[in-house]
Design a protein around this nucleic acid. Structure first.
Lengths: 113, 113
DNA sequence: ACAACTACCTTGCGTCACAAAGTAGCAATA
DNA sequence: TATTGCTACTTTGTGACGCAAGGTAGTTGT
């Protein structure tokens, strides 16, 4: 398994929620959105399980709508629980990302031998 | 499983490697180091499997040494492979952390409806 | 002797990212 | 009207992960 995949773990939930919060999207288009944001190579085999998970947690709801061209699409919207979860993720990410970045850059003094 | 635990996934390898790169440490003291850095509540049940993993990957090597007080300690040092792995993790983290932070803050335009 | 602390290791659980493969609708061309 | 290709969703299986819980020893202090 790639380094990248490991780092992604647990982050994807928040990314998907953040995108859905801003605009209603359907699954197939999410990989394009994520790519645009800088997260390349997030395939359908990853996206759809994420969406199922979020639905199961009652964080998003899906609604089937017809498309002008092509198959029907399942559009997702954030629930109140989803908003709450996203806020929690934002908070936890903030508490993690800063110290981890500093640690990886070697900017942290953790001496005391 | 907690939001925090999910976010931690895959990040811990890099954090532990970064600490060991700076100074030789033994397992039991690592949780204290991590806490000092801002990563609270990383218990032994997490630490030791991580160290076993890193050893199995040949990223670190452990050496038993006597202690002036208490049981013997297993001190870990980075290998050349470990340095290489850490550099890869640093690179991947850099490519991930920035866009994810921006996305969670809602600072990203991903429109085009 | 006994308790408390240090230090290490293992087992088991649920979750995750992802490749791979499958299903099906629609569009276009021949 | 076949057939090719794109869109769009779903399922299965694999290996790795975080971590609580429990276990084994050695050391120190009383």
């Amino acid at each position: 398994m790639s380094v990248r995949s490991e780092l992604l773990k647990g982050i994807l939930n928040g990314c998907v929620l953040a995108i859905i919060e801003k605009e209603t999207v359907y699954g197939y288009e999410l990989s394009a959105k994520l790519q645009k944001v800088g997260l390349d190579d997030v395939s359908e085999g990853t996206i759809y399980p994420v969406l199922l998970r979020l639905q199961k947690n009652n964080w998003i709801v899906g609604e089937m709508r017809a498309s002008e061209s092509g198959p029907r699409r399942k559009y997702y919207t954030l629930t109140a629980d989803g908003e709450e979860a996203l806020e929690l993720i934002r908070s936890e990410w903030g508490k993690l990302a800063v110290p981890v970045t500093a640690l990886l850059k070697g900017e942290v003094e953790h001496g005391d031998h």
